[in-house]
Design a protein around this nucleic acid. Structure first.
Lengths: 246, 246
DNA sequence: CAAATAGTGTCTTTTAGACATTATTAA
DNA sequence: TTAATAATGTCTAAAAGACACTATTTG
C-alpha cells in the first residue's frame, strides 16, 4: 500500500442548494487562489467511492447526510492542468502525511456526484485549505478551475433528468409544506413555470402527498393547506419512478 | 510518469448484442480461468476515459466503432478480490513492459460503459490473454468474476432508461429496414411486447423514419415496406429526446 | 375594500390503448 | 387454397393543457 489515498482518482461533488425560488451551487475557493472550484477530494483506499464522496463533502463543506447521486466520470491527461490553479506552498491538498500534492499527477480522473439540499437550513463551513465557500446562483457561476464548468453543466442535466423520473422534496421542504411551496421547488429545478391548477391535480393524483388538517399562516393572504409526504407512496415512487412532467 | 497506464483505474464494457429477437452480452474467459468476465482494461495516461474504453473494446473483442455510453463507476477496496479469479503466471493483464499485474493493486475503480451492437454482423476476436469470447443470452449469464454481475445488471437498467428517452436503431438495423424489424428491436430491448398497430402509429408519427418506395421480400408472406432513418430528425431526437414508450 | 395569494372545475385537444379485418406472397 | 405475415382505422379512456373565477386573510 503506497499511501492512504488512491492515486489518480478523485471525487467531485456538485452540491445544488434550493431555497425560496432559487437554485444555487456550492463552490470553494482555495487559499491563494482567485478561481473557484467544485468541492472535491481523494478516495481512501479503505472506502467505497460513495463513502469518499460523502466524506469529502463533510470535510470540505461541513455538510452531512447528503444524498449524493453519481452521474459521470471525467478523465484525460490534461484535465487538471490549469494555469489559473495556484498550488499552495504547503501542499494544500495533502490530506495525510503520506500524500503529496496529488493534483500534479500526470493523470487525474474524477468521479462526479450531484446532490440537492436546502441551502438556507444548512450551515457550510469551509475546509482547512479553503479561503472561501459560497453558494452561487446558476446565473453567476464564474469560470471554474479545470473542467468544473463542464461537470456542473452535466450535473444540471442529470438532475433535471432525475426530477422527470422520481419524486423530490423530502430533503428540500419542511416536514409540512404547501402546494405552492412544492410547486415552486419543481419550477425552480426544472427552470420553467407550471400551471397552478394542473400542477395541483397531478401532484395530488400521484398520491405521494397527505393532506393535513392544518393551514399555514402567510400574512395578509389566504392561508394555504399543509401537506406532508406519504412515506410509503414516496418510497415506492423512488423505486418505480414517477413521471409528473415530461 | 511511472508507467504507461493509470494505476487503480480500469474501464469495463458491457457490450450488448442484438439480433433477431434476442439480446446478448459479450463475455470473455481469461486463459486458465473457469469464470467469465466483462471485457475490460486499463487506461493509458495519454488517452481519455472514453478513448480507453474504445481501445479496450477493440483489443479484447475486435469490435470497433462502438457507441459506448458511460453509466457508472465502481470502486471499493475488495472489488477485485475474487477467489474464482486465477491470474496467469505470465501476467495476463500486462499490456506493456512497464505494467505488472495491476489487478492485484489494493484498490481498483472501474468506469463502466455499455453499448448495443448487432451481434450477427460483427466478428469478435478474443484478445491475447483470453481463452474464449462468447455472446451470452441474458438468461444464461453465469456467475461472473468480481462485481461484474452487478455492473451488467446496472447496465441493463441504464440501457432501458436510455431507450425510453432516445431513438435507437442506427447501429442495429440494416440501412433499410421494415416496421416489424424495428418493432422487434424495441420489444427485445424493453423486454416486453408492443401492440403492432400502436407501434406503427407512434414510430411513424415521430417523424424519424422515411418510408421508401421499396419492399422487402420475406418469402411466402406479404412483403413489408422498407424504411430508413431520417438523418436530420434522428439526430434531433438524439439531442432533444424522444419518448415513444413510457 | 384593496391587495395578495390559495383553491378549484371545465372544456378541448392530444395521446394511449384496445381491438379485427383485409392484403399479399409463395408453396 | 392455405399459411404466414403486413398494413391499417376506429373507438374509448385517460391525460395534458388552456383557461377564470371565487375564497381567504389582513391592513
Amino acid at each position: 500500500m503506497e499511501n492512504n489515498y488512491v492515486s489518480h482518482l478523485s471525487v467531485d461533488n456538485v452540491i445544488f442548494g434550493y431555497h425560496g425560488k432559487e437554485i444555487r451551487v456550492l463552490l470553494l475557493r482555495l487559499r491563494n487562489n482567485t478561481h473557484w472550484m467544485l468541492p472535491g477530494g481523494f478516495i481512501k483506499n479503505t472506502e467505497s467511492i460513495l463513502d469518499a464522496a460523502k466524506r469529502v463533502a463533510q470535510e470540505r463543506t461541513g455538510l452531512t447526510n447528503l444524498y449524493l447521486e453519481q452521474f459521470k466520470s471525467y478523465g484525460n491527461k490534461n484535465r487538471t492542468k490549469d494555469s489559473n490553479f495556484i498550488p499552495l506552498d504547503n501542499n494544500p491538498l495533502q490530506f495525510d502525511n503520506n500524500t503529496s500534492l496529488r493534483i500534479n499527477e500526470s493523470y487525474f480522473a474524477s468521479i462526479s456526484f450531484y446532490t440537492l439540499t436546502e441551502f438556507s437550513k444548512v450551515e457550510i463551513s469551509k475546509g482547512e485549505f479553503d479561503a472561501e465557500a459560497k453558494w452561487f446562483s446558476l446565473e453567476e457561476i464564474p469560470t471554474l478551475l479545470f473542467d468544473h464548468n463542464q461537470i456542473l453543466k452535466d450535473a444540471l442535466v442529470a438532475l433535471r433528468l432525475h426530477v422527470n423520473h422520481f419524486p423530490i422534496g423530502k430533503q428540500l421542504l419542511e416536514e409540512k409544506f404547501t402546494i405552492p411551496e412544492i410547486q415552486a421547488l419543481y419550477e425552480t429545478i426544472l427552470g420553467k413555470t407550471l400551471d397552478r391548477r394542473n400542477f395541483s391535480k397531478k401532484i395530488i393524483n400521484s398520491g405521494i402527498l397527505n393532506k393535513l388538517d392544518e393551514i399555514k399562516k402567510i400574512g395578509a393572504h389566504r392561508s394555504p393547506n399543509l401537506y406532508n409526504f406519504n412515506e410509503e407512496k414516496y418510497l415506492e415512487a423512488l423505486k418505480n419512478g414517477l413521471i409528473l412532467f415530461v
